[in-house]
């Protein structure tokens, strides 16, 4: 079955990102397809590679990047939400005159249409948030 997942909260403050991660791992293990993971609201903060948690804690951002690489996940960060919160890839940084980009590997910045499209193309959408 084709699943799409939406994540509305950033890492650490809320459990949403952890719950979504555990759900996706279980779904993949069962042979389901994750057609897209869409990061919205503060969820875009899951995509900054500048996250440096204490060494004895999970690195939520790196964990997403590694999962994406292993399973070829399409992880999309909403552009409007990302701009508000200071998440930028190279193109966004250039366009907005920023002195750096901070997006982690495996994430891409795109429009909200990607969320609606995921809803159209998947069999189920599961939302994790606060």
């Amino acid at each position: 079955m084709k699943f799409a997942v939406q994540i509305n909260e950033g890492p650490y403050t809320h459990q949403a990102s952890d719950s979504a991660y555990n759900f996706i791992v279980a779904a993949l293990e069962k042979g389901h397809e994750i057609i897209r993971v869409f990061f919205y609201h503060d969820g875009v903060n899951n995509a900054t590679r500048f996250t440096t948690p204490p060494q004895d804690d999970r690195n939520i951002v790196t964990r997403w990047s590694e999962l994406a690489e292993k399973h070829n996940l399409d992880m999309v960060v909403c552009v409007a939400a990302a701009q508000r919160r200071g998440i930028a890839d190279e193109g966004e940084a250039k366009r907005n005159g920023l002195d750096a980009d901070n997006i982690a590997p495996g994430f891409r910045i795109s429009g909200l249409g990607q969320l609606v499209e995921a809803g159209i193309q998947s069999d189920r959408v599961v939302v994790f948030g606060d």
Partner: peptide, 13 residues
């Protein structure tokens, strides 16, 4: 506010 943004986009689909 951000929900409203999704609603507006969805209308285009």
């Amino acid at each position: 506010l951000e929900s409203l943004e999704v609603v507006l986009i969805s209308a285009a689909f």
